[in-house]
Structure formats: structure tokens, C-alpha cells
Design a protein around this nucleic acid. Structure first.
Lengths: 356, 356
DNA sequence: GGCCGAGCGGAAAACCTTTTCCGAAAATCA
DNA sequence: TGATTTTCGGAAAAGGTTTTCCGCTCGGCC
């Protein structure tokens, strides 16, 4: 009875568990045809009570679960979505991934994840590979070139971008970085800052280019912006902090919270007081930013929501697949304790914007 | 030429891309049989130069990539590994996931991820579901009961646990929490602390029980330990900090770094100075712990390495599948700035252990 | 020059499930 | 009661790949 198909392969002799029961085993056990078993399980056609009960009993007895590969082969879909991120260690991407995963789980979809280690060169391959195993791919903050991205969009059936807009009508959900950076600059100028150091993110990142646009727009006779090459991780921020200090700027605008936390740690090491001697801002509002001292002035982005929206776009894309809808998320400035008036005007201006 | 099989299904009329080329299309294009195409691509049997070249050209021309579902159906394997974590927002689990993913990528395996949202009840289903789509599952710090875990190990072909040991001979890689907590307690006692508050982790976590064992062993006439219910996230730590303060302990031992950072933020809000008024320790050494002020005294755990070792165990398990090897990782105490002598003995004892 | 072996390539089965097509039985109506 | 429709279940094909089995051809050796 239980040894039906198991005999065929029982060569190893060790504790080899019997090969998984197939729909044929269930059918035989229930005394019906495989078609009936399938109908009971998928509900594709009604089955009368007698056989149905026998099938359900057999399924339970044998612990049968349909083989996804066979289903996938037939249906042509995988019920899986791929997510490509630059770095899982970065809390930002971990949160976005969590958002996608949770939304996908609700819809009975699996999530495949690939970490490119911040290497733009591997993004293409990772996405391509994932697209073989999934119905589509969510590309998180891709650093690849516009041209590569366009080409990729043709090879991957359902491509959704996060934080990357393109001319190629790829569905995307993105934070309005320009608005965010603009509000940071406004905040700093209102505090009296006239010279600001900016810790640059990855040169290839679209979000970095968006920030640059906003910085150019904000710069002027009353606000000078000094660019410091940096990166996207906290150790990058830690490393770049000294150079930022050397510019004699009164405020430092970091590419992200993650970077800002690194810079903040360096300032602490050097005994540079924030915000008394220098102001510091981040971007993204990762959870840790509320926990450091001083609490970081930043721009809030609901990262899990970003992931959820990417999922929704993924679902829509399946439905029509025509236009490339773009969802823009506008972030909000939150003023905390890491920004204040510059030292030279501290006496004449209020200490923090919150006091106004 | 390009319209070979595409004609058959071109009903929709919209921009429906041609259905993916199959091995049969390639065979026809190259003027060989499907078997030869397969042999060229898998290298399972030698093929002479002429056909081989024609096949490769046809593959490139058609952009053919084998259908993984069909391969999986035939081979009975998926080249994928599942990872179940309690919470992707927790940097600890994100790092472990990264470790598994990177190791798996090297071996041309995909990673499937599920987030249980710290709900022990959903762990079983998540693992079971993932095991359908993957060759095995890595269970990260499962909160489920010992009994459930044993049962699960029978249903999932290749189960590997991280930070969870069991009697059921499930392969596992785990941090030696007892040694870690013991070294923390020793450190605090040497500093002169006699009354310590412990911020408890999730009651169901095996790692929490291991910590409890170590605490019981460390407790004695010269070291009193007061238990404070808390949790595993930074907001839990933030919330529990007041209760810890109320115990009038001179040091707080947090379940993890993530929790400790929450407590630290609360202390900062309350104006309680660390370590002058109260000492604080974490566990895990997440990257942010080096960035806060004061830098956290903690116990280092290489989390990505933990994930990589879990992957190795997964690979081994496939080979024999007999014994349940257990890899123990011994963590190391790193004394930073968040611990010092208690206020009442500050004059008579060195300020930090590092001064000795 | 003939025989044997090796090497190469094709036909077909197998993997497991879903779905279409069809036959049989039951139910409905005149 | 006989004819017709409906309902239900089985047989078989399809989905794409790998692999076994077998036949063919070409080379070498006697």
C-alpha cells in the first residue's frame, strides 16, 4: 500500500524517504482517475460527494502536495516574484524587500531574492536569472545604465523598478528625491546655513542624480554646496566625514540615513558636537535614526510601503502590460535634533527650526 | 524566421511578445534533434564541432533559455533554497539572509525568502510552503515548539536550523549564547556591578532559553539578575528601558544589539548617561552598534558567516542526510564605551575594563 | 579489403499535472 | 415510458526538457 511507487527507486538502502506521492498514487488510493483528484484540489469542475471525500482522505493519508514544477510547466507561470537589491545589509533595502515579500505572501506568491553586492555589472545577470524562475522581477535602485535597463526590460516579461525612472516606460515606484532634498536645503537655509557639504551616493544611482538636480536647483548665492565623494553605506559615511569637516561647511547633507549614521559616529569620535558645531541630515528615516543621539533630522520614506506598491505595480503589469505607470511617493521632512543654526549665527537665530 | 512558433498563439493582438523559444525551436533552427541541443547545453555527452556550432548560434539567435520548470520536473530538484526569518527589518536576520544568499548564488542556487513577522504560528506553514519550491529550507531562529520542529523536520527533506538546537538531530549552526552571556556577566562583575537588569527576548526563542541558562549560572550572591520582559526589536527595548531603570540596577543586559539600541535611545531621552549612570550591553554586534554613542559593548557574531555555514550544512545534508551535524560558533566579547564601573564604586575601581 | 569497435546523433520515454474531449449514467420532461 | 438534456468521471494529450536506448557511420586493425 505505502510501497507503491517507492519500490522503483529504493536503491540507496539508507534512510531514503519514499519519493513524494504523485497524483497517480492519490488517484489509485482513492479509486478514481487523476483527473478527478485534480478537479477536487483545484475546484475546476464539480465533483460529487463520494469521490471527493475519498480523494480528500487519500490526500491526507499520503500527505500529497502537487508538484509545483509540473504545475508551472503546464500553467506557464511560477507564482513567484524576484527581487534584486544592491545590498541586503542596508536596512533600506531590507525594508523594501520585506514590503514586497509580505504583499506577495498575501497573494500566495513566493519571493526570490538576489543581492548584487552594489556591483552594477551583476545586476543584469541577476535579474535575467531570476526572471527564469519567477513571473517577473522587482529591480531595487538599479545602478545599471539607462541603456542596459531598456534592453533588460525587453528580456524580462514583467519588470518593475523601485527608485529608478526611465524613458523606457517601465513601471516604477519612486521616491521624489528632488522634493526631499529641496526640503532639506530649505530647512538648512532657514536655519542660517550658507555652506553645506554633500556626501554623494553611488554615481550610477538614479536617486543620486535626482538629488544632484535638486542640489543644483537649491544652490545659489546664499547657499553653496560642496560635493564629497562618499557611497551608500555607513562605513562610506564614516570615511567621508573628515573630508566633509575639512570643507568648513556648517552642515552636512548625507546621501542617506545609513550614510549619515556613519558620519555621525565619526563626528562623535572626533569630538565634533552635532548640531552645535555642525548640522547633519539624512534621508529615508530608517528605524535606527530615531535611536541615535542626536536623533537624526531626515526625510521620511515608508520603505515597506514602497515594496508593497512595487508589488501592486507588478500585479497590474500582468493584467495589461501596456503603459508603464509610475507612482511617485513624496517624502516628508522630519526635523529632529541633528540640525541647528550654524555656530556663527547661533546667537541671533533660533536654535532649531522646531522652536519657531 | 522569427515567427516560427509564435503564430500558434498570437490571439491577443496587443503587444504580446512571442512565447519563449523551446528546445524544439532551437533544434529546428539548427537542423538537429532536441537531444543534441540538450547535450550541447548540458555537456552530458560530447557533440561534434559542426552541430555544436550550429546549436550555439541558434541558441544565441533565438535567445533560448531552458525552461526551469521542465528541468525541475525531470531532475526532481529546484536549485533553490528557502530561508524563513522572523523579521527582515531586524538587521540580524537581514545579514544572515545575505550570507545564505551569497553562498547559494555561488553555487547557482536561488534563494526563496519568507518573513513570518515574529509569529511562531506561521513558521510551520511558511517552511512547508517553501519546501515545495525549494530543495530545502533554512530556518532562522525559529520560535516554534520543539514538538512542531521535530514534526516539521520529517516533512521537509533538507532542513537546517540557525540558532536553534534540537534533540531531533536536525543539522544546525548556532551561536554559543551561553558562552557569550557568561562573558558579558563576567565583564560586568569585574567592573563591580552587583545588580543587573536583563531585557528578555521572545519567550519562545531557543536563544533566549540559552541565555537564561547562562544567566542562572552566572547569578549568585555577588550578582543579582532582575528579569524584564521585553522582546526582540528596538522598539521593545525602548519601551522596556524605563522598567529596567526602575529596578535600580547598575547595568542593563539587553537580549540583542537591536534591543539595546532602543534602550540606549530611551536613556538618552531621559538624560540618563551611559555608562556613567548605567551600563548597557548588547549581543550580536550589528554594524550600527559601532556607530552609536557611546559605542556599544557587545558580543561579536559574524552573521553573514552564520548564513554561509547554514548553506554549507544544507549542501552536506544533501550528500548523506544521515547524522545531524551541529556547528557551534563561539562569539567574542568586545568591550566598547557603553560599560563602566557602577557609580557607587567608580572612585575605587577602574572606569572601564579596557584600562586594566 | 573486410571486420570490429567507438563515437555520434536521433527517436522516444519519462517526469507530473491540468484540461479538453468524450462517453456513460442519471435526471428531467413530454 | 421513451427521448433529451445535464452531470459526472475517465482517457489522453500537452507542456519542455533530459536521458536511455539504439542505429548508423567512420576509423582502425588484421
Amino acid at each position: 500500500m505505502w510501497c507503491n511507487a517507492a519500490m522503483g527507486r529504493a536503491q540507496t538502502g539508507t534512510g531514503a524517504r519514499p519519493p513524494r506521492a504523485t497524483i497517480i498514487d492519490v488517484a489509485r488510493e482513492a479509486g478514481v482517475s487523476p483527473a478527478t483528484v485534480s478537479r477536487v484540489l483545484t475546484g475546476s469542475k464539480p465533483v460529487s460527494a463520494g469521490p471527493e471525500q475519498r480523494v480528500r482522505a487519500a490526500v491526507a493519508r499520503l500527505g500529497y502536495r502537487p508538484n509545483p514544477a509540473a504545475q508551472g510547466l503546464l500553467r506557464g507561470t511560477t507564482s513567484a516574484v524576484g527581487v534584486v537589491v544592491p545590498d541586503l545589509s542596508n536596512p533600506y533595502f531590507a525594508e523594501v524587500l520585506k514590503g514586497v515579500t509580505n504583499a506577495a505572501q498575501q497573494a500566495d506568491f513566493r519571493t526570490l531574492v538576489a543581492d548584487t553586492g552594489e556591483k552594477a555589472a551583476t545586476e543584469r545577470d541577476a535579474a535575467l536569472e531570476l526572471s527564469r524562475w519567477a513571473d517577473g522581477v522587482v529591480l531595487c535602485s538599479p545602478r545599471m545604465s539607462q541603456w542596459e535597463l531598456t534592453e533588460l526590460a525587453e528580456a524580462v516579461p514583467r519588470l518593475v523598478c523601485v527608485n529608478r525612472l526611465s524613458r523606457a516606460s517601465i513601471p516604477a515606484v519612486a521616491v521624489d528625491f528632488e522634493a526631499g532634498v529641496a526640503s532639506i536645503c530649505r530647512h538648512l537655509r532657514e536655519l542660517g546655513h550658507r555652506r553645506v557639504a554633500y556626501l554623494r551616493g553611488p554615481a550610477r544611482a538614479w536617486s543620486e542624480r535626482a538629488r544632484q538636480r535638486a542640489l543644483r536647483a537649491a544652490a545659489g548665492p546664499d547657499l553653496e554646496i560642496v560635493q564629497i565623494p562618499c557611497g551608500s553605506s555607513s562605513v562610506d559615511g564614516h570615511r567621508a566625514a573628515d573630508a566633509a569637516l575639512a570643507t568648513r561647511a556648517t552642515a552636512v547633507v548625507a546621501f542617506s540615513d545609513y550614510v549619515a549614521l556613519g558620519a555621525l559616529a565619526r563626528f562623535d569620535e572626533l569630538g565634533v558636537s552635532v548640531p552645535d558645531e555642525i548640522s547633519l541630515t539624512g534621508f529615508d528615516d530608517i528605524s535606527l535614526s530615531r535611536l541615535v543621539s542626536p536623533r537624526l533630522t531626515t526625510v521620511t520614506v515608508n520603505k515597506q510601503d514602497l515594496g508593497r506598491r512595487a508589488w501592486e505595480l507588478f500585479v497590474e503589469t500582468g493584467a495589461d502590460g501596456e503603459d508603464g505607470p509610475v507612482v511617485m511617493v513624496t517624502p516628508e521632512l522630519v526635523v529632529r535634533a541633528s540640525t541647528g543654526a550654524p555656530a556663527d549665527v547661533a546667537g541671533s537665530l533660533p536654535k532649531t527650526a522646531a522652536d519657531r
